[in-house]
Amino acid sequence: MLELRGISKSYGDQKGVENVDLVAPDGSRTVIVGPSGSGKTTLLRLIAGFEAPDRGTISLGGRLLHGAGGSVPPHQRNIAYVAQEGALFPHMSVADNIGFAIPRQTVDRARRVDELLARVGLTAAFRDRRPHELSGGQQQRVALARALAQQPDLMLLDEPFSALDTGLREAMRTMVGDVLRDAGIASVLVTHDQAEALAFADHLVVMRDASVADAGPPQRLYERPADIDVARFLGEAIVLPATISGGRAQTALGDVRVRHDDAARANVLVRPEQVRVAPQSDGVGALGRILHRAYRGAQWRLEIECQECGLAEPFSIDVPASFELSPGDHVRLSIADEAYVLPR
């Protein structure tokens, strides 16, 4: 288990991270997500040991990596690090790159290299290639194989997919997730892409302004975030003022169930996919107006404004392609399932 306690690090008067606590369970896939400059990469570099925190302790599996007694240097941590673009050694072949961490006298060194290549979906034909002869995706695969070769206690991935094309990115993400699960290696991945974060994580940490804004299972963070900003960062959010009583919230989009028993006035969070859109002729629900629609094959993406519901900004929502309404038309809006009462 990776444990960070009260970690702070600043560069001059610029805060890198401030008072961060973080726990990544064994075998888990932790994702640190946040906008650029939020301190997520700094955190990763502190875990790897490339930089030392000003305050706080870091431990891995009960072993203190950084604390009052000093710092374990990166080469003694057995924490693998996969950099943004793979950072393959340009003067070595693929096989030499992968074998870098395998001692030379190891008996079945060559076989292990081939095995690792196969594990990341590359054939033995790649052994003698040079990094510059590989595509971006292949470079990332080799970088992953190289990191696996050292049999690390933890693998750090610094935006490993951001340099890849959209299609490739998803395939790589799945592949990396599977390989790490099969190997039973805990990982910490840093990204600024919330969709990637939600897809990869089983433990999600949202960073903002050098500290942790929220952390937990991705579903919990998406449905019941710590505050409005986390809600907005993880996906499109509709925030409605509501009057709450008896486990129900009254909003301009109608009544909706909430897990909140006290009577109160609060903001509730509704995700667009919870909003039901019906033709005006249906006669129930708040009245909204379609501003714009874009065809996406299976669906239409509608942009809807609802000023009478108290929404300052229009929101986007996907409806089936069979939905026959055009910009300018009015629609009836209502909320399905359950809304979430945002903490004050």
């Binding site: 790897a48 490339f50 240097p73 080469h75 996969v82 961490a101 750090l156």
Partner: peptide, 9 residues
């Protein structure tokens, strides 16, 4: 950094 993380002095 990568080389270091791979256990090299």
């Amino acid at each position: 950094e990568t080389a270091q993380s791979m256990g090299k002095r």
